[in-house]
Simulated scan of single mutants.
Amino acid sequence: MLRFVLFFLACLSLPFTAVQAHETSTDGLQLASVNAAVAYANSEELVYGKNAERPVPIASVTKLMTALVVMESGQSLNEYLEFQERHIPAPANAYTRIRIGSELKRGDMLRIALMSSENFAAYTLARHYPGGYDAFVAAMNTRARELGMKNTTFVDPTGLSVENTSTASDLVKLVVAANQYPEISEYSTTRYFTARFRQPRYRLPFGNTNALVHRKSWGVDISKTGYLSEAGRCLVMLLEFEGKQLVTVLLDSLGTRSPMGDAGRIRRWLSTGSSGSVAAAARDYARQKNQAYSTTESSASAH
């Protein structure tokens, strides 16, 4: 936790002019998410930012970087990989229905990691990376630096660790990079999937954790949800909007449906200028979280 606090404070001093330029000009948009960023995929400039430069835990949104590293490794998606017992304890609850010793194709592992946020699948992908688990995490951080994600750090491939931190504006860059791979788009927006394991042979059904992928009118091209108690409810998406690809990053919301509500408010705001409204409970939650960040900063500065 100390590492996260120190990282958080160090990153607060790093500027991002595009966010600063828009942070003060879009106060009319009301979002439940404590931190957010909106941008068109073909532009480096945000059209909206809310605490977009604040480094925060990102939970399973981490798996988008996991997917990018897997795809860029060039490893076969048709190769069967074994689910091995964890060599290190999981940072948080890591319940899974998958049996240790069973095997699944790499591509199917990646699919259930993205669409259903299967943590054991993400962990296993890292274990089978050239050089092993530690090399995979190192590759995640190297790729983040190459993409200009200066306020981002990874310590595990699942997002179960609170020390996986990033900013809303950094995650826009990650989504744009992931968009280069049709497999990430397909896997992350798969609605339902039955994984077929071998040794032993069995099947498990999986569903997408983002209800919006089930609605064709949304045109979701990339999706990833995330949740930890420290991170709140998170959602990042790339979607088709008025003939363009729009990236939305929503971090730290109170309820399971709050990020989806925010996504709708963003689309209406871009179309009509309507500011929208959020529930009082969500506003109270945001105030408490913002106060907690300020307290953490002040406490750390005192030491």
Rank of each mutant, 00 (worst) to 15 (best):
M1D: 09
L2D: 09
R3W: 00
F7A: 08
F7T: 02
L9W: 07
A10P: 03
S13V: 08
L14N: 05
L14A: 03
T17I: 04
Q20K: 06
Q20V: 06
E23A: 14
T24D: 12
L29Y: 01
L31C: 10
S33W: 05
S33A: 14
N35F: 15
N35C: 15
A36G: 00
A37N: 05
Y40W: 09
E44N: 15
E45N: 14
E45M: 12
V47F: 02
G49S: 09
A52T: 09
P57N: 09
P57M: 07
I58T: 11
A59M: 01
A59Q: 05
M65R: 11
L68M: 07
V70G: 14
S73D: 08
Y80R: 13
R86M: 10
H87N: 07
H87E: 10
I88M: 11
A90L: 00
P91G: 03
N93A: 13
Y95Q: 01
Y95S: 03
T96A: 04
R97S: 04
K105E: 07
K105R: 13
R106L: 01
G107L: 00
M115N: 06
S116E: 02
S117M: 07
A122P: 13
A126N: 06
A126P: 14
Y129G: 03
Y129P: 07
P130V: 07
F136C: 02
A138Q: 13
T142W: 07
R143M: 13
A144E: 05
E146W: 07
G148C: 12
G148H: 08
T153R: 10
F154Y: 04
P157N: 00
G159K: 01
L160A: 04
L160N: 04
S161V: 01
A168R: 00
A168L: 03
L171S: 15
L171R: 12
L174Q: 12
A178S: 15
E183L: 06
I184V: 14
S185M: 12
R191T: 07
R191V: 12
A195W: 04
R196F: 11
F197N: 07
P200T: 12
R201H: 14
R201P: 09
Y202H: 08
Y202Q: 05
R203H: 13
L204Y: 00
L204R: 00
N208G: 09
T209M: 02
V213F: 05
K216Q: 15
G219H: 05
V220M: 10
S223A: 13
Y227G: 10
L228I: 01
S229C: 10
C234D: 07
V236Y: 03
G243N: 02
V247Q: 08
V247T: 12
V249P: 08
L250P: 11
L250D: 09
D252Q: 08
L254T: 08
T256F: 10
R257T: 15
S258V: 14
P259V: 12
P259A: 15
M260E: 14
G264Y: 04
R268W: 01
L270V: 03
T272C: 06
T272P: 05
A281P: 09
Q288N: 15
K289A: 13
N290F: 06
N290S: 10
S294I: 00
T295N: 11
T296M: 09
S299Y: 01
A300M: 06
S301E: 06
A302W: 00
